[in-house]
Structures are given as structure tokens and as C-alpha cells.
Design a protein around this nucleic acid. Structure first.
Length: 476
RNA sequence: CGGGGCGUAGCGCAGCCCGGUUAGCGCGCCUGCUUUGGGAGCAGGAGGUCGUGAGUUCGAAUCUCACCGCCCCGACCA
């Protein structure tokens, strides 16, 4: 039935590419590693943006925009930061037909340009906090790219906040992490583990990095959002100080945080099946699609006007579409909308007109439900909510099935290969042992849990004392 | 940067080994008629610098050399 989509069991990577292509989310551009985000993909991104933007504003943030070009010297001001980003920067050397005096880096992230600006904005504790977010594109010259998951240019939001104290910056970093978690779980229907990154995995230039981590259907981990406590590192690099209530000069404390179009990749790999994309209703640009079915020309107009009447009060309440194209037959449309991930299909034909009913078909389960046309909107709305929670529960059950607590090294390595998954293992904290996860199992520490999850044991690698388990997995 | 694969119509491919009329097939597209509750049928039609450049040859999609690009799999990263 799923024409043109490789089955997950045959080739997972191919399946992913087929979904992106068949759902018309994006395609490759003439430039290596870049993508054209097509209307279906962009509509999804717009819905992600709209909800997140609302949540940022509810937590006191405002939007602004900083330029894409950054003087090369700025990148070099924060030692860890340069080291982390220098290799993957695109650099503009010419403009207006002339060689530039100083090359311009196309932003890989905006900490440097923003902190060079904050320097001018901050003098007193009364200027703090600054809680700014920006929606932007960034460029990172990656060696290996995949549509949405890792592209040379991608869209994201980056929050950059400035605070008077360590604790305030910490609270901000934590608050945003919880916003990300809530968004992932309540809107994308993607269950996530939250925690802290190891020293090796943290952002270049941060004191520590928090993240949300999700499991994909191939049991690999995908980092879906990060929130960094930047300490005073950028304030020191750009000499951003403020006068506190006692009149003393102090360096400003910072946080930064972001999610990107990678979320679309996460959404695909969490919910979709061999028949195509599945979009959780709360983010679906089209939540329901009507497919009128007719046998004679005379019925077309009858159906059109009937559906128009039926949906007269739907506008503004639910995003739906009526597919009354007559160059395609119903079966074709069924498949097309399934591939595009529309959560609910509403079939209506002569039989239904006679019986005052419609046929609802759930995208998540394929279940067909015959319901009365009376109170259809309420029925559709509650069904969409049910699909939303079913998707989340299904994803959570799947994740639990492949999340293991493991104490035996051989068994851990073996299970990393087959079936793969998330592993809670004891780790002593040594970098050497962390490297062994990569060496032995091509896996890495995805998160270190927060306080309250202490448990003493022995490091699965070296056997020395360990105070806690960490989550280890192969990752995208 | 290593390994693999591929560049021929919008998409997917055959043809190449063994050079030779007008480069072919499926899907899609356009026109018409019949159809329409799980990817419709028939008829007609449009659509090509065979990735680029050089070479061999009377003659190159096909042989030789070089280059370019893309995809997939690994090492680095959101």
C-alpha cells in the first residue's frame, strides 16, 4: 500500500528520506548539505515556532534579531568557544567585489555578536535581567548531513539571557529546560529524558549544559534541545560588567538555549510508520481532511454544499481541508494524506448522506469509526486529543521497552548492538571510562541525571565506586 | 577524511561489457472519453546539452583520461 516508501525494517535511513520526500517536507538544494524546506515542512515549523514563541513570552522573554555576519575576531575571544566552532565556520572574505579587511564569519551561533552588544546595554543591576530570544538561521559546515537532523544551514531559536547572579542564570537555564520538556511531551508527543551533559558533551564555552534527549524508532538517541549555563565566560571575553547594589563592578552571568528544525526530524522518527508521516494533532497544519466520494457528477455539488454546511462553524476552531479534486480517486487521496501525516480523515459519500453519518479514520491506528454528523466538530476535537495522547503513550511505551538498567559490561556492549536502546549504567566520572563507551559500543553518555537520583554502585567500565547511573546510548 | 554507490526526460531506471539509423521503458505531466467507498482504464500527445572537459575514431550515452557534483555507510557535531 505504501508505494515508494522503504519499510523501516528494510532500511531505516532510506525510510527516513522517503518520508521526508513523500510528505513533501523538504528536498536537497544544489549546495551540499543544504535543504529547501517545502510548504508542508515549513508549515510544521511555523506551528512549532508559534507554540514555543508563546511559551517563551509567557516566561518573560522578548524577541530581537542580531545580524548573521560576525567579525572573525569575535569568535576568537572565548577560548573554548573558538576551539569548538572554528572548524565548522563558513567565512566570507569578499564583499562588493573587494577583499574584506576582516573576514566575516557566518554565525554558527550568536553568543559572540550578542555579548559584544550586551556590553553596551548593561551598566547597572537595574539593566538586568535581559531575556532575549531570536529566531534565525545558522550555518555549521558539517562533514555529514541529513535532512532536518543535521544540515549545513538550519533554522532555530536561540535564547540569550543576562543575569546578576549565578543562581538567576541557573534558574533560567533550568526553567527553559522545563519549557523544552513540556513542549516536546505535550505538543510533539515525544517523551524525553532530561539531564546534564558530561564535560565532553557540553557546549563549548558553557559551565554546564542541560538537554532533552529522545529515543528514535531505531533505538538511537536524539538530542532535541539544549540549555546552557554560560557562567561569566562570555561576559569576561567581551568585558561585560555591571554595578551591583553595593556599587561594585561584577561580570554578568549568562545562559543560552536553543531548539532547531532538527525537531522535525525527531517528530518523524518518533511517530511515523511505513505508510508515511504521522503528525501529532496539536502541531498538524491540517488536522483533518474531508474526502468527498461521489459516483455521478450531480453528487459533487450536493456533497460540496453539504460539507460546507457541516463545517460552517469550524473556521477558527480547527484547521481542516476539503479535498474535492476530481482528477484523483478516493483511494489515491487516502494514501496521499496518510503519507503527509494528517491525523484524521473524514470520508463522506452518498451512503453517508443517506444515513446522516461520516466515516472517521485515525492516522495513528488506522481505525475506522462511523459517527453521526450531529455534533461532528466535538467528536473530531475529542478524537484529535485522543490521537495526541495515544501517540505520546505509544512513544513512551516504546522507549520503556528499550530502556535498560545494566551492570554487566559484556551484556551492555552486546545489547547496544542488538537490540540497541538506552542504558542506565554506573559511571565513575572519569573521562577515560567515558571514552570507553565510544570505544566498546560506539555509544556516549546522553545525560547525567539531576540530584535526587543518586545510587551507589560500581562503574561498569573500571569497577571503581560510582555515585549514580548515567544514560548511555548510540546517538544521532 | 576513509569505504560504497550513482550521474541518460520532472522522478525512478534500462541501454554501456561487445561504438553504428530517429536513445528507450515505467511513473508523472497535457488532451479527450469512460470512471470514483483503499494508489482507475483506454486512446492520443508533449518532454533529452546522455554531469563537465579533453582525447581515440569515419562515427561516442557506449572506449580512455581528467574534473565536478550528489547520495549512502563510518570517524566529528544541534
Amino acid at each position: 500500500m505504501a508505494k515508494g516508501i522503504t519499510k523501516r525494517s528494510v532500511d531505516y535511513s532510506k525510510w527516513y528520506i522517503d518520508i521526508v520526500s513523500k510528505a513533501e517536507l523538504a528536498e536537497h538544494s544544489p549546495v551540499k548539505g543544504c535543504m529547501v524546506i517545502k510548504p508542508n515542512g515549513y508549515a510544521l515549523w511555523e506551528n512549532i515556532q508559534a507554540q514555543l514563541d508563546k511559551m517563551f513570552k509567557e516566561t518573560g522573554h522578548v524577541n530581537a534579531y542580531f545580524p548573521m555576519f560576525i567579525p572573525e575576531s569575535f569568535l576568537k575571544k572565548e577560548a573554548q568557544h573558538v576551539e569548538g566552532f572554528a572548524p565548522e565556520c563558513a567565512v566570507v572574505t569578499h564583499g562588493g567585489g573587494k577583499k574584506l579587511e576582516e573576514p566575516l564569519v557566518v554565525r554558527p551561533t550568536s553568543e559572540t555578536i550578542i555579548w559584544s552588544t550586551y556590553r553596551n546595554w548593561i551598566q547597572s543591576y537595574r539593566d538586568l535581567p535581559i531575556l532575549i530570544n531570536q529566531w534565525a538561521n545558522v550555518v555549521r559546515w558539517e562533514m555529514r548531513t541529513r535532512l532536518f537532523l543535521r544540515t549545513t544551514e538550519f533554522l532555530w531559536q536561540e535564547g540569550h539571557t543576562a543575569h546578576a547572579t549565578f543562581d538567576e542564570a541557573e534558574e533560567e537555564t533550568w526553567k527553559i529546560l522545563r519549557v523544552y520538556q513540556r513542549f516536546a511531551e505535550d505538543y510533539m508527543a515525544i517523551p524525553v529524558f532530561i539531564g546534564k551533559k558530561s564535560e565532553q558533551e557540553k557546549f563549548a564555552g558553557a559551565l554546564h549544559t542541560y538537554c532533552i534527549e529522545a529515543m528514535m524508532q531505531d533505538h538511537k538517541a536524539l538530542q532535541a534541545g539544549t540549555s546552557h549555563h554560560l557562567g561569566q565566560n562570555f561576559a569576561k571575553a567581551f568585558d561585560v560588567t555591571f554595578q551591583n547594589e553595593e556599587g561594585q563592578l561584577e561580570y554578568v552571568w549568562a545562559s543560552s538555549w536553543g531548539v532547531s528544525t532538527r525537531l522535525i526530524g525527531a517528530l518523524i522518527m518518533t511517530h511515523s510508520d511505513d505508510n508515511g508521516l504521522i503528525i501529532p494533532p496539536r502541531l498538524a497544519p491540517i488536522k483533518a481532511v474531508f474526502i468527498p466520494i461521489w459516483k455521478e457528477d450531480a453528487q459533487i455539488d450536493q456533497l460540496r454544499s453539504h460539507v460546507a454546511k457541516l463545517t460552517a462553524d469550524w473556521k477558527g476552531k480547527i484547521d481542516f481541508k476539503i479535498d474535492d479534486r476530481d482528477q484523483y480517486r478516493p483511494g489515491y487521496k487516502f494514501n496521499e494524506w496518510e503519507q503527509k501525516g494528517v491525523p484524521l480523515r473524514i470520508e463522506i459519500g452518498p451512503r453517508d448522506l443517506e444515513n446522516n453519518q461520516v466515516v472517521l479514520v485515525r492516522r495513528d491506528t488506522g481505525e475506522k469509526i462511523v459517527v453521526s454528523q450531529d455534533g461532528l466538530l466535538q467528536r473530531v476535537e475529542s478524537l484529535l486529543e485522543d490521537i495526541q495522547s495515544t501517540l505520546f503513550e505509544r512513544a513512551r511505551a516504546y522507549r520503556e521497552e528499550y530502556t535498560f538498567t545494566e551492570d554487566d559490561l559484556d551484556r551492555f556492549v552486546h545489547k547496544c548492538n542488538d537490540p540497541g536502546g538506552f542504558f542506565w549504567v554506573h559511571w565513575c566520572g572519569a573521562v577515560e571510562c567515558e571514552d570507553q563507551f565510544q570505544e566498546k559500543a560506539r555509544a556516549s553518555i546522553r545525560i547525567i541525571p539531576f540530584k535526587g537520583h543518586e545510587e551507589s554502585g560500581k562503574c561498569i567500565i573500571c569497577g571503581k565506586a560510582s555515585q549514580q547511573r548515567v544514560l548511555v546510548a548510540r546517538a544521532y
